[in-house]
Design a binder for these strands. Structure first.
Lengths: 161, 161
DNA sequence: CCTGAAATATCTAAAAG
DNA sequence: CTTTTAGATATTTCAGG
C-alpha cells in the first residue's frame, strides 16, 4: 500500500508545501511529469498519509491574536490517567496552538496564541492553577516569531540533508 | 486597503484553515455567499496578508523526520548584532521548524525536526557549540506531538472567544 | 456590497502505447 | 511511465441590481 516515496514525490511535496495552489500542470513541469502522473501521485500521497492536510495559514495578528506565549508545564504525578487528562485539556483549548509532551525539566511545552496578557492569565487560571496535577509552570513571552510554520525539510534528491 | 474582516470572512477563514481545498461554491454555501463573492473575498484576504499562504502539511515521519526536539537557548550577550546573527543562523537551518525569540529564562525557543539523535547532536555542534554567543542550551525530547499545527482560533461570529 | 451567467482553466479518469 | 481525449468541476471575469 504505502509505496516508496521517490524523488518525483519529493519535488511535488516540496512544491505543494510551499504553495498548495500550484496547478497540477505547473507541478508537472517542475517534476517533469505529466499532469496525469501528478494527479495520481498526489492522490496516493494523501491516501498514504504523507500529505496530512491542505490548509491556509492565517496571520494571527489580523484576527487579534497579537501575543504568542511559550509555556512549560511540570506535572505533579506521572500517572498515565492524570497525564492523559492534562493532554486532553490542552488539546481542547483553542488558544493552545501546539502542545508537546516532552522528557526533561518539564513535561509539556505549550505554544499559546492569545489576544492579550489578560486572556493568557485567565487561561493559566483555568488550565494550570485549576488543575491539581500541575506542579509548576513557566511562561516565556514571545517577542519575535522568527520562524513559524510546519514545514518539513524535503530534499528533492531524496537524500539526507 | 485593509478592509475590516467581517463575519463572512470569519466563516471563510475557519473553513479554509481546516481544508484549503474546499471549492468556492462549497465555501459559498457555508457562508451564504455566491461563488463570485467568495472569490473576491479570498483574493482580498490574501492581498491583505490575512491569508499568509496555502500549504500542505506533510507527515514528518514519512520523510524520515521521526524525532522532534524542543531546545531553549540562552545567549551570552544581548547585543543586537549578535542576536541577529543567531536569529539568521536559526532561520537558515532547515531542521529548525520554528524559532521564537522570547523573554524569560532563555532567549530562543527552537523546535527541531530531525531524523535521529545523531543529526541533532551534529546540529548542536554547529549551531550551539560553534557559536560563541550561545551561553547555554537545554534539550527537551518530544515523546508525543499532542497538538501540532498553525491553526489560529477563528470565531465565526467575529466575537472574542 | 451583492448575484447570476458566461468564459476560462483545471481536474479527473479512461484508453492506448 | 507517457500522451491524448473528453466530460465534470472549479475559477474568474463581467454585466447589472
Amino acid at each position: 500500500m504505502t509505496n516508496k516515496i521517490d524523488s518525483y514525490d519529493h519535488v511535488l511535496l516540496a512544491a505543494i508545501q510551499d504553495d498548495a495552489r500550484l496547478s497540477q500542470s505547473e507541478l508537472g513541469e517542475r517534476a517533469n511529469l505529466s499532469t496525469a502522473a501528478v494527479n495520481r501521485r498526489l492522490k496516493q500521497l494523501a491516501k498514504d498519509g504523507v500529505i496530512e492536510r491542505y490548509t491556509a495559514n492565517i496571520n494571527p495578528k489580523s484576527l487579534g491574536y497579537g501575543l504568542t506565549i511559550v509555556a512549560e508545564v511540570k506535572a505533579e504525578s506521572e500517572r498515565a490517567d492524570l497525564l492523559d487528562e492534562m493532554r486532553e485539556g490542552f488539546r481542547a483549548c483553542r488558544q493552545i496552538q501546539q502542545c508537546y509532551y516532552v522528557t526533561g525539566d518539564c513535561d509539556f511545552v505549550l505554544i499559546f496564541l492569545v489576544q492579550d496578557m489578560d486572556q493568557y492569565v485567565e487561561l493559566t487560571r483555568r488550565l494550570f492553577h485549576g488543575n491539581n496535577n500541575v506542579k509548576a509552570f513557566k511562561t516565556l513571552v514571545v517577542m519575535d516569531r522568527v520562524k513559524a510554520g510546519m514545514h518539513v525539510p524535503v530534499d528533492k534528491s531524496g537524500e539526507r540533508s
